[in-house]
């Protein structure tokens, strides 16, 4: 008889209950706990009462200021260089562009410390280009604040490139063609049509890029060192403080966690929302 079978099926659908297999539920619970527990621990162990005093010491404020300045500077550099790179990757049709795209995005998966070593080889005082910068312009990048910006840009610019390139690739070329028939030059088209249409992705890419730069550690410490007031950013300060002042380290970590949450909230608005198309 079919009838009872159908009835139970309907009943189960109506209550919407679906039992999760134990073999999935148990490891999933462990996974959730593993990801959330450290954050909870950080919140519990935080020296809430002394938080303000811990964060307002001069060397913490210096590190915080340095972090914000360097991350913002590297985001600006990433925008200035990365958007044109994304445009070339998305729009220029020549053989080998796929390889170039892969190479440009290597820093996304490269261990940052390797990035730092590579930067030393290129821009260090005896580096491929660095020796000429030093000899001709007296310009030294390693172990300077500019070096921090260089290291952060190297690691974070690919985030911006990937976001913007995806938006350019999926943007409607027909609108740019329409603009051309209306007498607009390539630059006008870029400025008045292309750029406004990819704004959501541009914003999301910038936020990601900035957050990555703010959290940068490996490439920075390798290429720029860890000099308080000069190259010691917030993340380096956390690492330092953990040795002799754990409470300060926790307080700083809370600040960075707060930034991460803010970034996530910002991206929820922008990230992956498709750009407007005709």
């Amino acid at each position: 008889m079919d009838r009872p079978v159908i009835t139970t099926f309907v009943a189960r659908r109506r209550t919407g209950r679906q039992r999760t297999p134990v073999t999935i539920a148990v490891p999933a619970l462990l996974g959730f706990a593993f990801l959330l527990l450290p954050l909870v621990a950080l919140l519990i162990r935080a020296p809430w009462s002394q938080l303000l005093s811990l964060l307002s010491t001069s060397d913490v404020l210096t590190a915080l200021r340095l972090s914000l300045v360097c991350a913002t500077a590297s985001t600006v550099v990433s925008l200035l260089l990365g958007v044109p790179v994304a445009w070339i990757l998305a729009r220029v049709k020549v053989p080998g562009m796929g390889v170039l795209r892969a190479l440009v995005t290597i820093p996304l998966v490269l261990p940052p410390v390797v990035g730092g070593v590579a930067l030393l080889m290129a821009l260090g005082r005896n580096g491929l280009v660095g020796r000429y910068l030093d000899r001709w312009f007296g310009l030294t990048l390693p172990f300077t604040t500019t070096g921090v910006v260089v290291a952060e840009t190297f690691v974070s610019m690919p985030f911006l490139i990937v976001a913007v390139e995806g938006a350019l690739r999926s943007s409607d070329l027909g609108l740019e063609e329409a603009a051309a028939t209306l007498g607009a030059s390539r630059l006008t088209i870029f400025r008045r049509i292309t750029l406004p249409l990819i704004t959501p992705s541009l914003a999301a890419g910038s936020v990601l890029c900035w957050a990555r730069a703010l959290g940068e550690f490996g490439a920075t410490i390798t290429f720029a060192g860890n000099f308080p007031g000069k190259t010691q950013t917030l993340t380096l300060k956390v690492y330092d403080a953990l040795q002799d002042d754990p409470d300060a380290a926790i307080a700083l970590s809370l600040v960075l966690l707060l930034v991460a949450v803010a970034v996530l909230a910002g991206l929820r608005e922008n990230w992956l929302r498709p750009g407007p198309t005709s």
Binding site: D172, G174, L175, E177, A178, A179, I193, P196, L197, P276, T277, S278
Partner: peptide
Amino acid sequence: QNYRLFPH
């Protein structure tokens, strides 16, 4: 054909 008006 589909006008291609600028949406923004």
